[in-house]
């Protein structure tokens, strides 16, 4: 077992979105991330999957240092990412980089690719030749050198995203957060970007937290997969095990919703699980298990008690009363 480079413990992020009441003002909070714990091993790809409003991007933004968590600890190689004095030291900024979803907004439209790439270089490698480093980065991601003089609007979406990846690599990070890096791209382009990311991972010993809503994609690249629903992880397990033996009702619903393109895949979909309902607003998370509004296997206990995270089999955890009971019986 390799070492855990990232440890997230009981992470919570609540946003105050509004206040209600005229005199005694009550804050309205969105519990975007509501008690999440996971580890990340060096060199692995953890797929974090969920629908919109599940809080997966919030986790990415917290890890990248855009938000401070409301509660909980995050340790990166044993160092607290959010120490008391608040400022993240430069060497940690260098180690953790992020690639965003929207290639259109990731690059400054008024600056050339070279100028865009120079931003992290000037900060983290002030003693190096910026021009040479820029060329090295473009070579690393297989883009022609001439691209440095182009403006982002001259590039296709896939190329913009590749430049965004190059910029993230500029600081020589060891951990990259990929926040839906291909969801805005066509499938024919997605393959190129994903393969580039996979090659970079093995060449540069990178660890990925790959956030996506595309389970089929995760099947092919993730070492482990975690499913999120309303700010909590419902199920987490090894990639292969995950798809052969999904346990949590929400995971099954998600799998059965995926549009597939072959008979082999149809067999993998849990047939009995017909998707129903929509994800509730994170302002009004139902009491008990948050999935109880849509769950076809709901029981009385689901409306009262929020289930614990249980290990169903080795390295396979789920948060559902179905398994809590079997554990007690056994």
């Amino acid at each position: 077992m390799s070492e855990a480079i990232l440890e997230v413990r009981d992470l919570k992020k609540h946003f105050v979105v509004d206040h209600i009441g005229t005199f005694r003002r009550q804050p309205v909070t969105v519990r975007a991330v509501d008690g999440i714990s996971f580890d990340l091993q060096a060199g692995e790809t953890l797929g974090l999957v969920g629908e919109s409003g599940s809080g997966k991007s919030t986790i990415a933004y917290i890890l990248a240092g855009m938000y401070r968590p409301t509660q909980g600890r995050i340790h990166f190689r044993g160092l607290d990412l959010f120490s008391e004095n608040g400022k993240r030291p430069l060497f940690l900024k260098k180690e953790i980089q992020i690639v965003f979803q929207d290639p259109g907004s990731s690059l400054n439209p008024r600056r050339t690719i070279a100028q865009n790439l120079a931003v992290p270089l000037q900060i983290h490698k002030p003693d190096k030749n910026i021009m040479r480093e820029t060329l090295r980065l473009l070579e690393l991601v297989d883009l022609p050198a001439i691209y440095m003089y182009k403006y982002p609007n001259m590039l296709s979406g896939g190329e913009k995203q590749i430049v965004a990846i190059a910029r993230a690599l500029a600081t020589d990070p060891s951990f990259m957060i990929l926040d839906e890096p291909t969801s805005a791209l066509d499938v024919s382009v997605q393959g190129k970007v994903i393969n580039l990311l996979m090659r970079l991972q093995s060449d540069l010993d990178l660890t990925y937290l790959f956030i996506t809503h595309d389970l089929s994609l995760m099947r092919n690249i993730a070492t482990r997969v975690a499913i999120m629903y309303l700010g909590k992880i419902c199920e987490i397990s090894k990639g292969s095990e995950f798809f052969q033996n999904p346990q949590h009702p929400y995971t099954q619903m998600l799998l059965s919703s995926i549009p597939v393109v072959s008979k082999d895949e149809e067999k993998l979909k849990p047939a009995k699980m017909i998707p129903t309902g929509e994800i509730p607003s994170p302002v009004n998370i139902p009491p008990g298990c948050s999935f109880n509004t849509r769950c076809p296997k709901k029981m009385d206990v689901c409306f009262e008690i929020d289930p614990d995270f249980v290990e169903i089999s080795r390295q396979h955890f789920a948060r559902c009363h179905l398994f809590g009971q079997t554990q007690k019986q056994g």
């Binding site: 997605q190 190129k192 995926i258 597939v260 072959s262 993998l268």
Partner: peptide
């Protein structure tokens, strides 16, 4: 298209 049945991702 990434397949749920695995098999890696083609270059496109």
């Amino acid at each position: 298209v990434p397949k749920l049945s695995g098999g890696g991702i083609s270059q496109g």
